[in-house]
């Protein structure tokens, strides 16, 4: 296996009852990378993260996380991984300091008191360390959770929608911290719904209905989807969009500000479909497809594959 890989797993599968929630997902994440994990709700992102850190037993699959066997050595993996749950899962009836201290004890952190003090200082919460975690706002809860996940100096962080419900300023601070830690050699696997966050990742994977549909850098993912996109501006765009959506060659017609993005993975069919509308007052331009266009196309496409 590649020593540069923090995560290198193949065929990871999880079934609940008869439903396959994660279906033979392969994933490779290099050390120091920030890897974005995208997909609609219920696509299996959380289940996949939980399998990586030993919270769920995989039904199938093999590979290594931080050099440890992902199935057999989950105890060793737990010691070097920080996992931040989607919902705030620290103890709301404990204070900030008590939470951090508890986590530090669980990981048997050396110089525990000093580490906790440092962590609180870095958080900028020295004056409020006695405050109960349950009384914190969403943004502060998220910062506390990240601090708690970092207290045992993990090598890999699994963050499950870490910025859900956090304001833009706090989100930006959060991502700055992630990039800083990644520069220090930490590896991140982060699930998110936000396009701007996806674009901040080094690499991306898109998962839908348990299947990995695309994987690579932002440009790679867009290229893999192979969309052709036209931008059109002019009067009464909602009406135009309605008409375009009925055309067989058009897969998406989405409003972006004062323009409409019309795209399809079949360039010829798209050209034929829009030809009847290519006259004034409409102004048509072919543009490079964006990440969001690509993701929506993936989402629509996978729906077609799965709904009978």
């Amino acid at each position: 296996m590649n020593a540069e890989s923090a995560i290198d797993v193949r065929g990871m599968t999880k079934r609940f009852g008869g439903r396959t929630v994660v279906d033979h997902v392969d994933l490779q994440v290099h050390t120091g990378q920030i890897y974005g994990f995208l997909g609609p709700n219920g696509s299996g992102k959380t289940t996949f993260l939980r399998m990586l850190c030993g919270l769920l037993r995989a039904d199938d699959g093999s590979g290594r996380v931080l050099g440890y066997d992902v199935i057999a050595e989950s105890d060793a993996i737990k010691r070097e991984v920080g996992y931040m749950t989607q919902r705030f899962s620290f103890w709301e009836d404990l204070s900030i300091e008590e939470n951090l201290d508890f986590v530090a004890r669980m990981y048997a952190v050396k110089n525990r008191r000093a580490t906790v003090r440092e962590s609180i200082a870095q958080l900028g919460l020295a004056g409020r360390k006695k405050q109960l975690a349950g009384e914190l706002s969403g943004g502060w809860k998220q910062r506390l959770a990240l601090a708690a996940c970092l207290i045992h100096k993990p090598k890999l962080l699994l963050l499950d929608e870490p910025t859900a419900g956090v304001d833009p300023k706090a989100r930006r601070d959060f991502w700055e911290q992630i990039h800083q830690l990644s520069a220090e050699g930490l590896t991140f696997l982060i699930t998110t719904h936000y396009m701007d966050e996806a674009e901040r990742c080094h690499r991306l994977a898109y998962i839908s209905f348990g299947k990995l549909l695309a994987d690579g850098s932002v440009d790679d993912v867009i290229a893999q989807v192979g969309l052709t996109t036209w931008s059109v501006s002019g009067p009464d765009l909602p009406h135009l969009a309605e008409q375009l959506r009925t055309q067989p060659g058009v897969q998406q017609a989405v409003a972006f500000g004062n323009a409409l993005h019309v795209s399809s993975d079949d360039a010829t069919a798209l050209k034929q479909a829009i030809a009847p509308f290519q006259h004034p007052p409409y102004d048509w331009r072919e543009i490079p497809s964006g990440l969001e266009d690509a993701f929506i196309s993936l989402m629509e496409g996978s729906k077609d594959n799965f709904t009978p």
Partner: peptide, 13 residues
Amino acid sequence: ERGTMENLLSMPT
């Protein structure tokens, strides 16, 4: 019930 079990289990206890 409070969801803290997930956190507890992700730790090496």
